[in-house]
Amino acid sequence: MRHLEQELDNLRQDLIKMWRLVITQVTNTGDSILTFDKDLAMQVSMREKKVDAYELKNDSNCENIIALYQPVAIDLRFVLAALKINSNLERIADFAYGISRILIANPSMILDAELITETNLRGMIEQVNKMMYQGLDAFENEKSEFAAAIFSEDYIVDEINNNAPRIIANYIQKNPDRAFECLHLMSTFRKMERIGDHCSNIAEEIFFYIDAKVLKHSPKK
């Protein structure tokens, strides 16, 4: 294997490791919120540092490859995509961390099971988890068609997120004493929705890397 290929492969491996870690963060966060598992939330919070370390490492790897090897064509697209996927993953991990912090800061918080069912929080969490896996799958197998699914998944996430405020507002009217927990729930929805957006961004980068197509800021079907 040539030197550049070796470096690119190292970058790929590190990015995949980070990706797996971030997926674990997201799924653990989802599980902890659904089961009010504070220990799991604590675990997520503690692993956040590790994600940050990966981000720094991947950043400097990308910088070095560009400076030392001046990659072109697919190599260049790979490095550029890796650079952006790296920062998207870091943002995703941040949101997961934020959600876990809510749980840790409010150890006594209990959400009404009925409300969770009505807002379809579980559905949203499952959808986001799925998108995370799809992105990694597409990247590892260099199949842009795998990434294409993410765009439609994101519509489902958006829809759940759009319906949530109304349901939560109704609930608060009926149960004004639960308003505090409800605001936290709303914030969790917002964060999950943002994770979904970042998954879409990652899908765009995968398209750019594999097919050299720029899908940014254009309507996707």
Binding site: R2, L4, V72, A73, I74, L76, R77, A212
Partner: peptide, 18 residues
């Protein structure tokens, strides 16, 4: 175009040093 997204596989192999 050639250096970001060449059309031909052969071109890409050459410019990326493969």
């Amino acid at each position: 175009k050639i250096f970001t997204n060449p059309k031909e596989y052969s071109t890409q192999n050459y410019i990326t040093g493969r």
